[in-house]
Amino acid sequence: MSPPAPGSLKHEVRRIEDCDPRTGYTYEEYTQTADWLLANTDHRPTVAIVCGSGLGALGELLKDQVVFHYSEIPNFPQSTVPGHAGRLIFGNLNGKPCVCMQGRFHSYEGYPLWKVTFPIRVFRLMGVETLIVTNAAGGLNQDYKVGDIMVIMDHINMPGFAGQNPLIGPNEDRFGPRFPSMSDAYDKDLRKLALGVGQELGYAEKMREGVYCSLGGPNFETIAECRMLNRLGADTVGMSTAPEVIVARHCGLRVLGMSLVTNKAALDYNNEAIASHDEVLQTGKDSAKFLEKLVSLLVQRIEPNNNVC
C-alpha cells in the first residue's frame, strides 16, 4: 500500500499520532542520562555553561576535555541550528570542573519546552550548582551597540503569557515546588561579579545590565513588535534562555545570564537594515576573545559551594 499523500486527511492523522503525547520526561529518564554521563567521565562539574548562537568557542576553553555528541547521550535531543555544534564538553576551566553545551535546543526546532530544557535537570543531578547561560540577542535599547554584553537582570517570557512553560504538567517534587518564584531568577551577586570582572578587564564601556525578552521565533521581529517590546521595558530580544532559567531556578540552581548584542533591532521604518543569522554568527566570532576572558575569570571566582569570591 502506498503511503498517504502529504496534505491528505489520513496523512494529517498519522502525523498527529506520531507526536509525543507526554508532558515531560520521567525522573528516571533524567537519572538515566545523568548516571550515563557520570559513568563515562571522571569530571564532576559544579558549573554548567550554555553557549548561544556563534558562542560555541567558549567550550574550547576547557582543559582535559571529554566530549560527547548529543547523538551519543541517552534521551538527549539534537541541535539543528547553524552555529550550534551539538556537543557536550566536560573539562576544567581555571581549575574549576565545568560542563559546556555547545548548542542549545529551541521550541522553533519543533521541540516541546520540556525537551528544550532537559539538560538543565540532568546537570542538577550531576552536582552542578551554578548555571551560566549566554545568548545572541537583538539590541532593543538604542543606547546599546553591536558587540556589547548585557548581564541579564530580569526577563520577559512572552511565550509564557500564552501558556507555554517548561513546567507545565505534573510537578516533580524531587526537583522543586509546584509554584516557583522568579523574582530572583538572575542571581544578584553573580551579576555584580560579572560587571566587576568586565570592568577589571577594561571592558566597562561594553558591559550593560538590563532586561531580556524571550520570544518563540524562528522569524526575527517586525518593527512594530520591536517598538512594543522596547516600550515594555526590554533591552534585548532573543529566542531562548527564559525556559532554561525557569527550570534551573525550579531545581535550585543559581543563574547568571548574558546577552551578546549581535544586531540593533529596527525601530524605525526608514531603517533598511535586515537582521540575519549570518550577522549573529559573525558578531559571536568577533566577540569570542572578549567573552572567553570574561567567562574564564568569572568561573574562577565562583566557588563550588556557590560562594562568590
Results as ranks from 00 to 15, higher is better:
71 S>L: 07
71 S>P: 01
73 I>F: 10
73 I>L: 14
74 P>E: 13
74 P>N: 14
74 P>K: 11
75 N>Y: 15
75 N>E: 15
76 F>C: 04
76 F>Y: 14
76 F>G: 02
77 P>V: 14
77 P>N: 14
78 Q>F: 08
81 V>F: 13
81 V>L: 09
81 V>S: 11
82 P>C: 01
83 G>N: 08
83 G>S: 03
83 G>K: 04
84 H>D: 08
85 A>W: 02
89 I>W: 08
89 I>Y: 07
90 F>D: 13
92 N>C: 12
92 N>D: 15
93 L>V: 02
94 N>K: 15
94 N>F: 04
96 K>F: 00
99 V>D: 10
100 C>V: 10
100 C>R: 06
101 M>E: 06
102 Q>M: 15
103 G>S: 01
103 G>Q: 00
104 R>D: 11
105 F>D: 07
109 E>T: 13
109 E>G: 13
110 G>Y: 08
111 Y>A: 14
112 P>E: 10
115 K>F: 06
118 F>N: 09
120 I>M: 00
120 I>S: 01
122 V>D: 00
122 V>H: 03
122 V>G: 03
123 F>V: 12
123 F>S: 11
124 R>T: 09
124 R>F: 04
125 L>W: 00
128 V>L: 02
129 E>C: 02
130 T>Y: 05
133 V>Q: 05
135 N>Y: 02
136 A>K: 06
136 A>E: 07
138 G>D: 01
